[in-house]
Write a protein that binds this DNA or RNA. Sequence first.
DNA 1: CAGTGGTCTAGACCACACT
DNA 2: GTGTGGTCTAGACCACTGC
Lengths: 261, 261
Amino acid sequence: MNPSLSPPDALAAAADSQAATPAFSPLYQQIKGLILQSLQASEWKPGESIPSEMELAARYRVSQGTVRKAIDELASGHLLIRKQGKGTFVATHAEHQVQYRFLKLVPDQGDLNTEGPAQRAIVDCKRLRASAEIARALALRSGDTVLQVRRVLSFANVPTILEDLWLPGTPFKGLTAERLADYNGPMYALFETEFGVRMVRAEEKIRAVLPDKAQRELLQLPHNTPLLSVERIAYTYKDTPMELRRGFYRTDTHHYHNDLN
Amino acid sequence: MNPSLSPPDALAAAADSQAATPAFSPLYQQIKGLILQSLQASEWKPGESIPSEMELAARYRVSQGTVRKAIDELASGHLLIRKQGKGTFVATHAEHQVQYRFLKLVPDQGDLNTEGPAQRAIVDCKRLRASAEIARALALRSGDTVLQVRRVLSFANVPTILEDLWLPGTPFKGLTAERLADYNGPMYALFETEFGVRMVRAEEKIRAVLPDKAQRELLQLPHNTPLLSVERIAYTYKDTPMELRRGFYRTDTHHYHNDLN
DNA sequence: CAGTGGTCTAGACCACACT
DNA sequence: GTGTGGTCTAGACCACTGC
């Protein structure tokens, strides 16, 4: 879209550009796309504020209401956060409120805050060649370098989650066990600040499984305790997969909570 | 709110009426509440269309835009469904698109449609006194009458889900094993048409468990197959719990799918 | 064609945060 | 007070549906 055009012209130009597919795309969707581009290009970084609605309206030559609708949709997708009287901010995994946004495991009594901060122990961290399965999940080629991490999360000093995760090697060049161990906070916050990778959504496949010997020992489990297997693919902007994670959750003291609506 | 007032007056009156609690409630939230009341009172029934935005605007003496915003929120909560050019409709569990809205179990290959319609077998259905646990979940008193149902769901003739569920006796007076067995469709659709109870949201607690003997036999499971335990409380309008359901899902051929955003 | 929801605009005013 | 997002209105026009 040419920002020098007046609104009706801008809309017409956009419609022309896809004349073959007569699909109608509202102006605010296009504005949404432009904002998304700026987010992806890190024009505004996580935690920072973006320009005010009026400024963006002037920049894109549309009315404030159109910008508002674009921002509304981005905010409902948790990409932006509106704060009345202050501004609109790029969402981040570092804020306390949303620290465990993708972790749906909660204690049977109380909540995660009751148990205090999680203890994170890196069990293993190495680079290797992607298997076919992992390459597919991360949209890589078989044999590409991936980083594999195994860690244990404990709450109130009880080991509760065992996680294996795989990251594409290129975007996470320079990530080591040491960096992971030293960082005290959510892994996704580290990804943002150190590697400019922001996870915006994820899909999980959940199953009940029996742990193998290594898993049983790492979680110090009694015999015959089934575990929740949570396989997650996390995506950054534009639906690019950036992490495959397989979590094994104890569910004798905790449960996976899900709201349906 | 007095509908005979002009918009600014209506807003002022609403603000006055809660002067003690200076909490500000936008007009569209109040309109949303009024529409919700009409839904709860079955003024418009599931599947039917509600009045047009213009009609509602006239009825409530507000602008179309305000009604629009109220409807938008109700639509995003799946209480209403907008259809361009046709109207706005009361959501229902009977429509094919949303038939399994609360069932997140999907086959590892394909989807639920691939497997064709579910086969439902009622194993047991009886009235009894609510235990303390069940009474608490359904906001009843211990000893109140509840209906208990056990059934098995099969896909492609493979028993896949075993469900125990409890319903409050009063709203579901007249529900019998026969009615359940005769009805060919989602249980929540039967609740709507026969008992005027529409489930609008639910919460699930998910765990990995080992089945007991009865469960293993009903699902024809190999030894030592862990199951996903899915405990659901479903709510109707105004957050009233109307069903407690404990499902046991096979996850060797299926998995529980969850989207995080 | 008329009726519905969907988009876009422009302007006024309100609630909230900072300074 | 100034600037931010939030609400409300009014009117114009567009896209889709069905008569």
